[in-house]
Design a protein around this nucleic acid. Structure first.
Lengths: 178, 178
DNA sequence: ACCTACTATGCAACGAGTTGCATGTGCAAG
DNA sequence: CTTGCACATGCAACTCGTTGCATAGTAGGT
């Protein structure tokens, strides 16, 4: 499993509550790793037992205490240990590709609508990433240590979205040409 | 879940045993959907109960009977019904991106080695896809009904691999420049 | 002669991930 | 004044997916 490690990376950037982490997994980190809040809370509890994080309880009025999780030295060790391990094969699951492959056996109109929707999503995401890139890394040739990782990941997001968009466009052209 | 549907698509192309399907999930279909043989057998049993496939038992000497699964009319209906449903968000889980994002906190040498290995894998897969493309679809402007789906999926594979390769190259250039 | 891989099925135990529910306040929009 | 969203935690039940094991003959390499 690697949700642990995604959380460790995130906590190494900045300490956070489970709630904060869950939101990060809906936003920036969510571009390459998804997790729900239930999962995050469960895993955080386990990580605490293992001593990878420790918790500072912050009382609040009218709502549950914030439990701010901070990465420990053991957590950093684990991150370094994990990063030296061979990376397992990336999980690939594209129901879009499944539907395309089954072209003669699926609902053609629905498929066409799916492709269009997907094209628009890729276009929107790509645009958002490019804006983010321009805002956060205005000068990509002058990045400090802390910025390089996030920059490279965002670059990956842009390349991935551009490829997805291109795929949709070609697919649409083919389907519409029939 | 959509493993059912990936199997239905595969069986619509050609009837098969669980063993055959498992191998397809290691090869062509595996480019966009992974599944182990244990999973395939389990799901096939369920699909049979639901009446989406039926099974012809073929006796063999010295090894278990082959159970050839064929898609039924109900299976085809299910495929059409499923394809009209909204597609859920694609699952994204890239431990590579996690490691990159955590750049300052990971083992730098190991990461560099991972990126190189990944670059080589993408290059090899891309080359294999392109050969497959040249062999299977020598004239992409003259595709019949049955070929279009597989063609488009392969195109998607090529675009995806090319993007991954590009990402690795840029990443390497950045990491090596430090 | 031995070891490995291929064919072909499947169970059992476990770990990962999803869905649904529960609780309770404060604040803003309609 | 009511509806809904943001904050903040978490349990329970379930399904999905992985890992390890079991069986058993045949073919091919060292």
């Amino acid at each position: 499993m690697a949700l642990e490690h995604a959380i460790l990376v995130s906590l190494a950037e900045r300490s956070a509550t489970g709630y904060d982490l869950a939101r990060r997994f809906d936003a920036s980190i969510g571009h390459f790793w998804k997790a729900t809040h239930q999962q995050v809370y469960k895993v955080l509890a386990r990580m605490q037992e293992q001593g990878w994080v420790d918790v500072e309880q912050v009382a609040q009025a009218g709502r549950p205490d914030r439990k701010v999780h901070r990465i420990t030295a053991a957590g950093r060790d684990e991150l370094r240990r994990w990063s030296a391990e061979p990376i397992g094969p990336e999980v690939l699951r594209s129901s879009f590709a499944v539907a395309l492959r089954g072209l003669p056996n699926v609902d053609q109109d629905a498929l066409l609508a799916h492709v269009r929707a997907r094209r628009d999503e890729h276009a929107a995401t790509l645009e958002a990433y490019e804006k983010d890139m321009a805002r956060t890394f205005p000068d990509p040739d002058a990045l400090d240590e802390a910025a390089l990782g996030p920059y490279l990941v965002l670059r990956g997001g842009i390349l991935t979205e551009a490829a997805g968009l291109q795929w949709c466009k070609e697919t649409l052209a083919r389907l519409e040409a029939r």
